[in-house]
Design a protein around this nucleic acid. Structure first.
Lengths: 109, 109
DNA sequence: CGCACATTTGGCCAATTGGCGAAATGTGCA
DNA sequence: TGCACATTTCGCCAATTGGCCAAATGTGCG
């Protein structure tokens, strides 16, 4: 008669996981780099300035939610952006940042 | 000669914080609800099915990154969505979810 | 004032996160 | 085979998160 409470949020778990996968400076940087084309792990490690083991983990998180895909070629593993639509987020994010400074409200939906 | 390493990610810290603020089922639900109009804390607590103290904290996180704003009227505090552009995210998120099931790649940028 | 109500804050706690270096795994080549 | 290289996995650890309840704060009303 009064439960079903926890179930309210079930619908939002997956989208929240995707956002969470994106919600880290290193992973944002990685996504931006992958938007330019496929990259191997050591190239990405170089450009984010972290150890390969750490970057490998970050890539694992992005892959787990389907944002990137990987392909092994020889000794290297190349990652590609699988969901380019997330690039639309950047636009809004920079608008928000500008808004924070300029103290003005962002745009419509 | 070889540092500047940590600084690489500085530019991404703020956008990552915004995404992180959004990256929780309860907060996503709240944002969706606020998209329909302003709501007080107890209404939001009701619709996400969590205690008011918890919801108040979630709102604090959304406010901290500028996604919502609050206005106290009488004993209640009403929250409004300040950056409607985040609603664009939902479209991409549901596309991604569909893609996960249908095993097919989402759309372009 | 004093009570009812709405909200925020503090304390507590279990779970997760993100970094590292070391070790394990995999690939290509001499 | 054996070494060099690329990547992932493991173990460790400090920091953060998210939930609850209780306490503090704020507002309106009688």
């Amino acid at each position: 008669m009064h439960e079903v409470k926890a179930a309210v949020l079930a619908r939002y778990k997956t989208p929240a996981r995707v956002l969470k996968a994106l919600a880290h400076p290193a992973r944002l940087r990685i996504v931006e780099e992958l938007a330019r084309g496929e990259r191997c792990v050591c190239e990405l490690a170089e450009c984010v300035g972290l150890g390969m083991s750490t970057v490998s983990r970050h890539l694992g998180q992005l892959r787990a939610v389907g944002l990137v895909e990987d392909e092994k070629r020889g000794a290297q593993v190349f990652y590609r952006l699988r969901a380019r639509c997330v690039l639309n987020f950047f636009e809004c994010l920079v608008a928000l940042e500008r808004a924070r400074r300029g103290e003005e409200v962002p745009h419509a939906a």
